[in-house]
Structures are given as C-alpha cells and as structure tokens.
C-alpha cells in the first residue's frame, strides 16, 4: 500500500529524514515510533504530498507522491499533528466543506457526514453537530479531525500523534477506534509513547535522528531488540576482588560491576546477548562454598531500547547545538 525508498529530507542544513526505506502492506496498522524531532512528521508530510522529499521516492496505493500527487491525495486521509480546524465554523458546516473539497458528489455529502459523525461519536449529544469548532474540547476536536479524514473513506489513513493531548479515557477510546479502522483501512500513526502504539499497531517502525532504528511486529521486536543480558548476583564468602576475578573468567562474560555492603557483594554481570550465566554462577558458588542470596537475570526490554535511542538522539542533538553555538 505504501512504499518508501531511500527517502531523504533536508531542511536547509538539517537532515530530518536520512535515507529511510520501508513498506506497508494492506490492512496493517503501522506505528511510527520515535522521540520528538525524529522525523516522523516529516515522513508523514512527504507521504501526504504536503512537501516533497529532497531525494528518494515514495508511493501510496501505487501512485507516486511527486508525479501523481492528486491520486495520492484522493487515497489518503491525513490528520496533522495539531488537528488544525476552522474555529469559526460549526461542526456540520466544517464536515460539509471538507466533503466538498474531497469532491464527494453533492447528494452524498450529507450521508457521508452522518456516517463519519456516527463513527466518531459526534452524533451525541444532539446539538454536537451545531456547535462551533472553536468551543469544542480537545477530545472533541480530535474526533472532528478524525471524522474529516474518514469522509471520503480512503484506503490509507495517516494520523500524526492521534492521541496527544487526550485524557486516559479518550486515549483508550481513540485506540479502540483506530483498531476498528484497521479492519478496512491501512493506518499509519505516529507517537512518541511506546505503550500506546504497542497496543494499537501490528507493526512498529522505530525511528530516531531520521533513521529507522528497528522495525517489525511488536512481539517480534521484543524478541529481537533485547539489549545485552545481565544477571545480578549477591554473594558472600570471598574478597570482592576474588569474586570479580573468578566470575570474569567465565565464558560469555563481558563486564562485572561489584558493589559491597554489609559483607555481601553484589555483582552486576553483563554477558553476550543469548547467554544465560545463572547456572554457571550458581555452580561456581556451590563449588567454591560461597553463599548465594540472590540470582536473577534481567533482559533488556523494548522500553530500554527505545529510551536508549531517544537518549542517543538527544546527545547527538546537544552535540550539534554546542557545535553550532
């Protein structure tokens, strides 16, 4: 449904999107996950024909975003991040205007508006459709924005931060709605909150500093994107230095960080990714007659990975700022 190849976007001297490629198949709900300023919105703006890429190509529903822009726009529903609406218009009026812009035939506009109003819970309370957009709460504005996007029933929906600024109940409702929409539409949504996209999407693309850091189904990513494994062991019965020395000699151990208090030495042992050092450590303790009071394994989670890349991006950003300053 969506194909992106070597897409790059420079804003003056700043590279916002750096040579990314990905594919989105029909019926997928794709979560674009990345810290603020990672290039999510820029990619979406290129896909929706708001701005052209510096280089690379992208196509939506088989149409190229540059050479066949009108057909791309017909097949896409795009909700920008801030959900910009005309505050002076009434909800129905706004939706009717959008329907006309979308070139929906005059006779079908009313039924299209009623359909999306129903779908996005705008039909209740009674007077909702007659209210001015400027008077609506954030949650309702978001619903109007989503309703607009669904008017022409596009095969592809592009939603930039659809849950930002909503309260927890609204976030859950929005998430369920998006999941429902996934049955008929291919959806790309962006977020900088992992927990949110994880529950909604069946495919994640993690992006940082304009590059794709990882991509795949959430469960698959959880498996794949584990950081180095790490075991924690608390031991007694030998000098700290001896303990460290002995453990470090085990195969697959990368580093050992000791800390001693109350006569117990706590060791954080970092190992290679697939290695589980627990059996070796406990066998070693038994053989040497050490007392073992705690032994557990910590696996780097997707959260850790996400926090890590966010942190790295921020560091790079700070470096660039100090360099230019």
């Amino acid at each position: 449904m969506i194909e992106v190849e070597n897409l790059t976007k420079w804003y003056g001297p700043v590279c916002a999107v750096d040579n990314i490629s990905f594919r989105v198949e029909k019926g997928m709900i794709v979560g674009f996950l990345g810290p603020n300023g990672a290039g999510k919105s820029t990619t979406m703006k290129i896909l929706t024909c708001y701005m052209p890429a510096t280089s690379g190509r992208a196509s939506v529903a088989g149409y190229d975003v540059l050479s066949d822009s009108m057909n791309v726009r017909r097949n896409i529903g795009y909700m920008p991040e801030s959900v910009p609406l005309y505050p002076e218009m009434r909800v129905r009026e706004l939706l009717m205007f959008r329907a006309a812009l979308r070139d929906i035939p005059r006779r079908q506009r009313r039924s299209a508006v009623d359909r999306v109003a129903e779908r996005c819970w705008l039909s209740r309370p009674e007077d909702m459709m007659r209210r001015r957009v400027g008077e609506l709460s954030r949650g309702y504005r978001q619903r109007v924005g989503l309703a607009e996007v669904l008017l022409h029933n596009p095969p592809v929906l592009v939603l930039d931060e659809p849950t930002i600024g909503l309260d927890p109940a609204q976030i859950r409702a929005m998430r369920e709605l998006i999941r429902d929409l996934g049955a008929e539409h291919t959806v790309i949504l962006s977020s900088h909150i992992l927990a949110q996209v994880e529950q909604t999407c069946n495919h994640l693309i993690i992006i940082a500093s304009g590059r794709i850091a990882a991509a795949g189904a959430p469960a698959e990513l959880r498996q794949r994107v584990v950081g180095p494994s790490r075991i924690i062991a608390e031991l007694r019965g030998a000098e700290e230095a001896t303990l460290v020395e002995t453990i470090r000699a085990l195969p697959g151990v990368r580093d050992v960080q000791p800390s001693t208090s109350d006569g117990w030495t706590r060791l954080a042992v970092g190992g290679d990714q697939q290695v589980d050092l627990r059996t070796e450590v406990s066998a070693l303790a038994a053989a040497r007659g050490w007392q073992l009071r705690e032994l557990r394994r910590e696996v780097g989670s997707l959260e850790d990975f996400f926090v890590q890349i966010t942190y790295e991006q921020n560091v790079r950003w700070m470096e660039r700022m100090t360099k230019s300053a």
Binding site: R73, P80, L101, E148
Partner: peptide
C-alpha cells in the same frame, strides 16, 4: 498561522 493550510494542501485540490 493556524496550520489548516496543511489539510487544505493535502486535499485533492490544486
């Protein structure tokens, strides 16, 4: 200013 230009320019309108 309000950003509605974005929805306008991504609609199938020249």
């Amino acid at each position: 200013r309000s950003g509605t230009i974005e929805t306008l320019m991504t609609s199938p309108v020249t």
